[in-house]
Design a protein around this nucleic acid. Structure first.
Length: 889
DNA sequence: ACGCTCACG
DNA sequence: ACGTACGTGAGCGTT
């Protein structure tokens, strides 16, 4: 089938420049095995794919500049003078961009004395004359002068693949000029990047006015005598020669003596082998994987391979043999995310090169399969060991020897991509022989088993195959990152500790919550009535939109802050309006109570299981810093700061009479971690002496000699400074938190850094490290990549810098408590205690225990926690116990 | 699905 | 001139 007559012309230099700078912040990530930078080549390829896909041209030509000397520089010495030299990281890539084009089967061309523009202009004319529809791709807006009804010009605007397409109508709309007038414009205004001057004192506005009246530069000078005497007229007359010369320089030639014709630009598509060879040379793994994927798709219409899967049944289970197996992968399929309650959908199993699947999970209880999981001599590879452990536990099966956990390992390799879907994660590792659950099961409420068992079993088989196939590569990566220990000693054992904590659950006193619910209900309706009275009408107090109308329009209170969508009614705003209207206090009280009622009282009641407990799920592979998070319910944000809310904790009780809740927390763990990694002697001394760290900071920054001179307000400000330091300080943020001016905040920071020079040094060093390596690490080599650290965008860059400062602190603290948890579980077992570890809230651990064990725990828990790691400063742990969680204070 | 608000460390 | 404190999850209202 003959293609449409379409000609694609690409300005090679300009697109390469755009690609290079678009990916400039990732320059060091794009280096191949020979040390060649490849970011421009990569970006060029992306752009090429996009434009080829959009236009599907029959003919393609990529034009390049031949060299510095052109007919333009001969006419005007300074043409393009003063331009920064092309960076060597880019110039080294040009030969390979031409190789890329060759692999694509695309002609590239350059011509002595001419620029790429002129080649394009000439070829565009020829294309038009031969009835072609022409598309020009460039990063240079000057080329829009070439637009006609047959030629459009696509200009890359942002990144590499975002383009703006110019037609004559679009040019007129955008510039107020016809395409052919662009050269007149440039003649008048000049071009600073190409370094030619134009007419003195004539800028865009004046030029537009002139061209509107006289059409062209020629037109202007034909009628110049009619113009009134003015500075402008004088300048025009004085610079007449310059104007014509500049117009000439700006004019793209359409008559360059090309040595090639339209026929030479015919494009028959890329040769796969050539592309493979080129991508291999460049280390473009994802492009290679894409090639494989598309070729597979072309071969058999399916993105994934066809596997031979046997359905396991009660009858054929006896035939299963694995005693000598060296490679076992298992995937348990559930109806939804909540593995504590979800229906079982089935499982997939890979034993060496054989694949099995079944819907009936009762089979797993049969000795034949049970043994596979429980006998420690079999190492099982899984995706999400915690989930698998907890779900098998519901079947009465203990998963005793997990080897490779694809989910955990992927997360450690890159804490920033945190999908929970096996297919998605596999794809991120350039492995495409498995579909995502969404593709097979559908999403949200529509999620369901495929109609045909064969389709389902194939998917299960591909999942276990992916686990098995990815193991070696990912473990090699872990090793390269020095993360094997983090995986084997921390994350993998922790996953099972967490599973046990989740399974244990914490008992909730339903009656207590019921009482609170009715009490809150009454108080809420009283407040509601008061608010309606004060507003003079009924409205939804929970709607920020409706509340905004009442406060700022009806009651005419001053607008303090706006959000994207309207007035802000957040607490800090309402605080400022206090005293202006009695409604504010009532709204604040209503808000506080409504939150407690809906999120905590009603929210918790909804998730109490039949055993009278709540079983949260800890997400171990979500946060960028290495912390855990808790969902369904979130037990890491139960109220504590306000007395009213704190009472929610009275509903968290032990599972047995005569047991108590026991809690231990690290005191100032993040600042201690900072004292350790920064090596700052003053900060370390403060912790070694076990002084009040905020007071001691206050003494430093206020220049006091004695702790008795520290006023509560000084301590409060010092505390805010310490927080700021941990968060990656900014004067703005600090000012906001202590309610000072930015200037004062800045002074605080400066005094702080002068007093704690080690901390200052650390902050500078860590940002430098992040820039050089592209990532930061915790004490145990947990990594977080920070690509934005090199961004030209101030906000993105600043954010990355604060993250670079904060992540090693927050992340190392997370590492430490994880180690403590693993050791804790071991110690509890070793000591034969009945006590159970139930919750982790970032720097605290919560247990339930028989009263008689409390004395033991009071010794044991702090000992285990403060000896989790050895730092340059001691770790301090504080403990308490009581009848309920509320009473552990 | 997304933004706002607010609960925690 | 810009516009930020770090890390989370849930409920609600609006789109």
């Amino acid at each position: 089938m003959a293609k449409d007559k379409k000609l694609l012309l690409v300005d090679g230099n300009s697109v390469a420049f755009r690609a290079f700078f678009a990916l400039h912040n990732q320059l060091e990530r794009f280096v191949n095995h020979n040390g060649l930078h490849t970011n421009a080549i990569y970006g060029f390829k992306l752009m090429l794919d996009k434009i080829l896909g959009e236009t599907d041209p029959a003919n393609v030509l990529v034009a390049f500049d031949a060299g510095k000397v052109t007919f333009r520089t001969k006419k005007y010495d300074n043409y393009k003078g003063g331009r920064a030299k092309t960076p060597s990281e880019l110039s080294e890539q040009f030969p390979y961009i031409k190789e890329l084009l060759t692999a694509y089967g695309i002609k590239s061309y350059e011509l002595a004395d001419y620029e790429a523009d002129d080649i394009i202009g000439t070829m565009a004319k020829e294309g038009e004359a031969n009835g072609y529809e022409v598309t020009v791709v460039t990063g240079d807006r000057d080329l829009t002068q070439l637009t006609t009804d047959k030629t459009s010009v696509a200009v890359t605007i942002k990144g590499v693949t975002e383009i703006e397409k110019y037609t004559p109508a679009h040019v007129i709309e955008k510039y107020g000029l016809r395409p052919e007038q662009i050269i007149d414009m440039k003649g008048l205004t000049g071009d600073s990047s190409d370094n030619y001057p134009g007419v003195t004192k004539v800028g865009e506005k004046t030029a537009l006015k002139l061209l509107k009246q006289y059409e062209t530069i020629e037109g202007i000078y034909e009628h110049i005598d009619e113009m009134k005497k003015s500075k402008l007229k004088e300048n025009l007359l004085a610079d007449k020669e310059i104007a014509f010369m500049c117009k000439d320089l700006a004019t793209i030639r359409t008559d360059a003596p090309l040595e090639l014709t339209l026929a030479d630009t015919k494009w028959d598509g890329a040769k796969r082998e050539d592309l493979v060879a080129f991508f291999e040379e460049m280390d473009f793994k994802s492009f290679l994987a894409q090639l494989n994927k598309t070729s597979d798709a072309q071969n058999d219409e399916e993105a994934v391979s066809k596997l031979d899967v046997s359905e396991l049944t009660a009858d054929n289970l006896a035939d299963l043999s694995y005693t000598e197996a060296s490679d076992i992968s298992f995937y348990l399929e559930l109806a939804n995310d909540n593995y504590h309650t979800a229906d079982f959908w089935g499982f997939g199993l890979k034993i060496d090169d054989k694949f099995y699947a079944a819907k009936d999970v009762e089979l797993l209880k049969q000795p034949k399969l049970r043994q596979l999981f429980e006998d420690e001599k079999y190492e099982i590879d899984v995706f999400d060991g915690k989930r698998t452990y907890a779900a098998l536990n519901r079947l009465g099966i203990t998963l005793n020897n997990i080897n490779f956990d694809l989910l955990l390992v992927s997360y450690l390799l890159n804490t920033s991509d945190n999908s929970n879907d096996l297919g998605n994660l596999a794809h991120r590792h350039d492995y495409y022989d498995v579909k995502t659950d969404e593709e097979v099961y559908g999403k949200g409420a529509k999620r369901s088993l495929p109609a045909e068992d064969e389709v389902y079993f194939e998917h299960l088989a591909h999942k276990v195959k992916a686990i098995s196939d990815l193991e070696d590569d990912l473990m090699v990566e872990l090793k390269k990152n020095e993360q094997v220990e983090l995986y084997l000693q921390i994350e993998r054992p922790l996953s099972l500790v967490l599973a046990q904590m989740e399974i244990a659950g914490i008992t909730v006193d339903r009656e207590r919550l019921d009482i609170m619910q009715s009490e809150f209900k009454e108080r809420l309706s009283e407040l509601e009535q008061l608010i309606y009275q004060e507003a003079g009408e009924e409205f939804n107090i929970n709607s920020p939109k409706q509340l905004g109308v009442i406060l700022f329009e009806k009651l005419k209170l001053p607008v303090v802050k706006k959000t994207k969508t309207g007035y802000s009614t957040a607490v800090d705003v309402l605080e400022k309006l206090r005293g202006m209207s009695p409604i504010i206090d009532n709204i604040l009280a209503y808000r506080q109570l409504a939150k407690l009622q809906s999120t905590y009282v009603e929210g918790l009641l909804k998730v109490i299981s039949t055993d009278g407990k709540v079983h949260t799920r800890y997400t171990q592979t979500l946060t960028a810093t290495g912390r855990l998070s808790s969902i369904d319910p979130n037990l890491q944000n139960i109220p504590v700061r306000l007395e009213e809310g704190r009472k929610i904790r009275q509903s968290f009780v032990p599972s047995y009479p005569d047991w108590e809740i026991f809690a231990s927390d690290y005191s100032q763990i993040e600042l201690r971690v900072l004292a350790h990694i920064s090596g700052d002697p003053h900060m370390q001394a403060a912790f070694k002496e076990d002084s009040d760290i905020h007071a001691s900071t206050a003494m430093k920054i206020f220049g006091l000699d004695d702790a008795s001179e520290v006023t509560p307000n000084m301590r409060r400000q010092a505390k805010a400074v310490n927080f700021g330091i941990v968060y990656g300080i900014s004067d703005f943020g600090l000012a906001q938190s202590i309610g000072s001016t930015r200037k004062q905040a800045k002074e605080f920071m400066q005094t702080y850094f002068a007093s704690f020079p080690g901390v200052h040094q650390y902050m500078q060093d860590i940002i430098k490290t992040a820039r050089e390596k592209g990532y930061v690490e915790t004490l145990f080599h947990r990594r977080r990549y920070l690509p934005d650290i090199k961004s030209k965008n101030y906000n993105l860059r600043s954010f990355a810098e604060r993250t670079a400062m904060n992540t090693p602190i927050q992340g190392s603290a997370a590492d430490i408590i994880k180690v403590a948890m693993i050791n804790m579980q071991t110690e509890l077992k070793k000591a034969g205690l009945k006590a159970k570890m139930l919750l982790q809230v970032h720097d605290e651990l919560i247990f339930e225990a028989p009263k008689e064990e409390l004395e033991t725990l009071k010794e044991l828990v702090p000992k285990v926690m403060d000896s989790a790691v050895e730092l340059a400063v001691p770790l301090k742990v504080e403990s308490a116990s009581g009848k309920t969680w509320f009473d552990t204070k």
